[in-house]
């Protein structure tokens, strides 16, 4: 963070130091610097949320909240580090759907953590909606029913891309096939931005993916957006139907949330939940998050726990049905 001060000084504007906020008498937390592990490389959407929240907590709780990016092993190393650290609130993690509800199932018995056994949820902070897009030159269907009919008439002819095995983008495609009986070939990429050129060029025809980078291409007519994968229609365009309107119960969103090691005292969890939820509801935060294509969420620890439980079950079923398992 000091680099910021250096840069700020160079730029000639002053930055206020951390302001001590009201500290409740019962829970003297935090008493020392807190590490916020972001199990992804710096700069992704998760990292940006992590840094925004850390900055807020530092201001209101009066101790440094330092973001540490540990990007190894698709996020496994980062989460593992938090699982193994002291359960006193001095180490938190900002994790995603894949980390919490997919990896422990996907990688099986040898996997180093079980989400709800080893971690205690604090609050969910975001929903990142996935949308169903097709290359308009390759696929003429413009509605979900037309698309399903086309896919069923041409089994395995269409390739769908994803940002990697076990991402919500991939599992969305699998869920779609399982629920509709359509059959496509899955082409995994290392991240969405590696996939996008092939989707634009028509090397692959279809994808479920996050909204922000896709919207300009949809606007330019290079991609056709058929539906959103959230349970309700999305704020950015109420005219776009949900997949669930045609495939009942279909939901494939990514989300992020904060967790702490399982044995962390409930008082600390409650305090963090209160602070983070307050921040997520600020108008400025809401504006930034929607700019990033995310819906800010502020849930109670119990709600977040329930979400993790439900989604783990849903993706477990998809993974087992689709036989998506490392050999």
């Amino acid at each position: 963070m000091k680099l910021k001060f250096l840069a700020a000084a160079l730029l000639g504007f002053s930055m206020a130091g951390p302001i001590a906020g009201p500290v409740s008498a019962q829970t003297p937390y935090p008493t020392k610097p807190v590490t916020v592990v972001v199990p992804f490389t710096a700069g992704g959407t998760a990292d940006i949320i992590g840094r925004m929240v850390a900055e807020h907590l530092q201001k209101t709780l009066g101790q440094p909240f330092v973001v540490e990016n540990i990007g190894g092993g698709g996020g496994v190393s980062g989460v593992e580090k938090v699982v193994k650290s002291a359960p006193d609130g001095s180490t938190l993690v900002l994790a995603s759907t894949s980390n919490l509800a997919v990896h422990p199932t996907l990688y099986g018995a040898k996997f180093p953590y079980q989400t709800l056994r080893d971690l205690k949820p604090i609050t969910q902070v975001s929903v990142v909606p996935n949308v169903l897009v097709v290359n308009p030159d390759k696929i003429k269907a413009r509605t979900v029913p037309d698309l399903i009919a086309y896919l069923k008439a041409n089994p395995d002819k269409v390739s769908f891309g994803s940002s990697g095995i076990g991402t919500t983008q991939h599992l969305a495609g699998e869920l779609f096939q399982q629920r509709t009986g359509a059959s496509m070939v899955h082409i995994p990429y290392k991240g969405s931005s590696a996939m996008l050129p092939d989707l634009l060029a028509g090397n692959i025809e279809l994808a479920f993916d996050n909204v922000p980078l896709l919207l300009p291409h949809v606007a330019a007519g290079k991609l056709a957006m058929l539906a959103v994968a959230t349970p309700e229609r999305a704020d950015f365009d109420k005219n776009i139907p949900t997949v669930a309107e045609f495939v009942p119960g279909f939901e494939a969103t990514a989300w992020h949330g904060f967790l702490a090691p399982a044995a962390t005292p409930d008082a600390v969890i409650a305090k963090l939940a209160t602070e983070i939820r307050a921040f997520m509801q600020q108008p400025e935060t809401v504006k930034r998050m929607s700019g990033l294509g995310m819906t800010p969420v502020s849930s109670m620890p119990e709600e977040f726990t329930a979400l993790i439980r439900t989604m783990t079950a849903q993706w477990k079923e998809v993974i087992e049905k689709g036989n998506i398992k490392p050999q």
Binding site: M1, K2, L3, K4, L6, T35, V66, V67, E68
Partner: peptide, 8 residues
């Protein structure tokens, strides 16, 4: 590294 760049 610690004062200047703020490495954790």
């Amino acid at each position: 590294f610690i004062r200047g760049l703020g490495l954790p």
